[in-house]
């Protein structure tokens, strides 16, 4: 018997060892390599995905705990033609360097901005506590996020 869940809107089943981390299942079995395998300890946030809409670190989630859930990865929140607003802002502000941390950053920030559409810089930094970037100085990332609600209309771009 496998574990059944929805992955980026499609029904999927996993028949391997249920103690396997979702991160490894995503990358090795489902060929979704957007979530990155970095620290494996819950510190860096490069592996963040949503379970039922909530950002979690997939490196610490065994697939066996996910029966019946809805999983969304970075591959499922936008597409090549229509980027998610956070992704678009990251491009506009030329934020990305090596890119290792960015899938996780986009997942964290997209969720955060839904509930907090007009955050301060300090709040954005607090929201990014669990997303570590080894390349950038973070400030440009924050600039990009601030642009989303400092836009002419004062609204979050959707």
């Amino acid at each position: 018997m496998g574990v059944d869940f929805t992955l980026n809107g499609k029904p999927r089943s996993f028949a391997g060892d249920p103690r396997t981390s979702l991160l490894h299942a995503l990358r090795d079995d489902f060929r979704l390599t957007g979530a990155k395998d970095v620290c494996g300890e819950g510190f860096c946030g490069a592996c963040i995905i949503y379970v039922d809409g909530e950002p979690k670190t997939s490196c610490l989630l065994p697939v066996g705990a996910l029966q019946g859930t809805e999983i969304t990865t970075i591959e499922g929140i936008g597409n090549v033609d229509t980027l998610n607003p956070v992704q678009q802002a990251f491009i506009d502000f030329d934020v990305v360097q090596c890119g290792m941390c960015f899938p996780g950053m986009v997942m964290t920030l997209t969720h955060y901005l839904k509930d907090n559409p007009r955050p301060s810089r300090a709040e954005v930094k607090a929201a990014l506590t669990g997303n570590i970037c080894r390349c950038t100085g973070y400030e440009r990332i924050i600039d990009a996020v601030m642009s989303l609600h400092n836009s002419a209309s004062g609204e979050v771009r959707t």
């Binding site: 819950g42 510190f43 946030g45 963040i48 909530e54 950002p55 979690k56 670190t57 610490l60 989630l61 964290t108 955060y112 929201a127 506590t129 669990g130 997303n131």
Partner: peptide, 9 residues
Amino acid sequence: SANPAIRRM
């Protein structure tokens, strides 16, 4: 403690 994603788990 920790970070937002870990606090959810």
